[in-house]
C-alpha cells in the first residue's frame, strides 16, 4: 500500500531466542525496525528485556533465531554470519549502546573529551584540535559545560555521566541506538532533559532506537512503538499509544493499570 514498505528495515529480528540452561531469557521475538523509529521494550524486571537487547546488539549470541542488520544499505545481513572485525566496526560507528549504568559505558580513567574522542580516534581521527572541537560541540549538545572537557567522568554527577555516555556514543553519527533503562535512577528534571535530548537526536538524525524501560511514561513520550514482554515472550506489540490506551493482552492491561497515571 505504501511505496516505501518495500524498502529495507534497519534491523530485523526473527524468532530470537535465548535459553540459559533450563531458564528462558527470551523466546521467539520477531520485529522490524526502520530509521526514525523508537521501539520501547517494556515489561517487569526479569521479563527478558535486557537479554533481548544483548542479542540484538550482537553482545550475546541468540540460542535460536536471527538478527539482521542493514549495513551500508547493502541489504540485511545476518549478524551471526558477520565477521568479527565488521561487527566490531559496526559497534563503534553505526551503533551506539547506552548502558543503564554510565560507568559501564564510559572510560572512567580519562577525561570527558577523551571519552567523546575515543570513537573518532578509533575511526582514524588524528588531528588533536579537531577531535577536541568535536568533543566540545557534543558536550554542548548534551548540555554539559564545555569547561568540564578535561575533567574526569568521576567528578560528574550521575545525570551528567549518563549524558556524557550518550555524547560518547553518538559522536560518530550512529544509525541505531540501543538504550538499557537510560533514565533509571536519575532525578526527574535530569530524566526530562535526557528524554528531550534523545527526542531531538531522533528527529534531527533519523536515528532508530531500541529502548528498554519499565517506565511507561518514558515509553509514551519517546516511543513510536511498544513491545510488551512477559517471561521472555512478547505478549503484545503495536503503536505506543494503542498499547497504552487500548492494551489487548491480559498482561499489558495489568501493566498499564498498575502504574500511576501516565
Amino acid at each position: 500500500m505504501l511505496h516505501d514498505d518495500l524498502s529495507c528495515p534497519l534491523l530485523r529480528a526473527r524468532s530470537v531466542t535465548k535459553i540459559y540452561g533450563d531458564h528462558v531469557g527470551c523466546l521467539g521475538v520477531s520485529f522490524d525496525l526502520w530509521p526514525g523509529e523508537v521501539l520501547a521494550i517494556v515489561g517487569e524486571s526479569g521479563s527478558g528485556k535486557s537479554t533481548l537487547l544483548s542479542c540484538l546488539s550482537g553482545a550475546m549470541e541468540p540460542s535460536e533465531g536471527e538478527v539482521f542488520y542493514n549495513a551500508d544499505a547493502t541489504g540485511l545481513t545476518d549478524l551471526a554470519g558477520m565477521p568479527e572485525p565488521q561487527l566490531r566496526a559496526l559497534a563503534r560507528t553505526d551503533w551506539a549502546f547506552v548502558h543503564q549504568n554510565p560507568r559501564d559505558g564510559l572510560r572512567m580513567s580519562v577525561s570527558a573529551g577523551a571519552n567523546i574522542g575515543e570513537r573518532l580516534m578509533a575511526n582514524g581521527a588524528r588531528h588533536y584540535s579537531n577531535i577536541r572541537t568535536t568533543a566540545e560541540t557534543w558536550l554542548e549538545k548534551v548540555e554539559i559545560d564545555t569547561s568540564r572537557l578535561d575533567d574526569l567522568p568521576e567528578t560528574f554527577s550521575g545525570g551528567m555521566q549518563q549524558r556524557l555516555q550518550i555524547a560518547r556514543n553518538l559522536v560518530t553519527g550512529p544509525r541505531l541506538v540501543f538504550m538499557d533503562e537510560p533514565p533509571g535512577g536519575l532525578d526527574v528534571s535530569v530524566q526530562a532533559r535526557l528524554l528531550d535530548l534523545v527526542r531531538k537526536l531522533v528527529a534531527d538524525h533519523e536515528l532508530a532506537v531500541v529502548i528498554v524501560t519499565h517506565d511507561l511514561a518514558v515509553a509514551r513520550l519517546l516511543a513510536s512503538r511498544l513491545m510488551v514482554m512477559q517471561a521472555g515472550r512478547v505478549v503484545e506489540t503495536g503503536l505506543a499509544d494503542q498499547v497504552l490506551d487500548d492494551p489487548q493482552a491480559p498482561y499489558s492491561q495489568l501493566l498499564v493499570s498498575s502504574v500511576l497515571q501516565v
Binding site: R88, S111, A114, M121, A122, N123, Y128, I131, R132
Partner: peptide, 22 residues
C-alpha cells in the same frame, strides 16, 4: 589481543590525547 589482531589502535591515541589535554 583482539585489538592487536584487528589493528584497533584508536585507544593508543586516547592516551596521547589525554596527555595533551592534561
Amino acid at each position: 589481543r583482539k585489538m592487536h589482531a584487528l589493528e584497533e589502535y584508536g585507544l593508543m591515541h586516547v592516551k596521547l590525547y589525554e596527555d595533551i589535554a592534561r
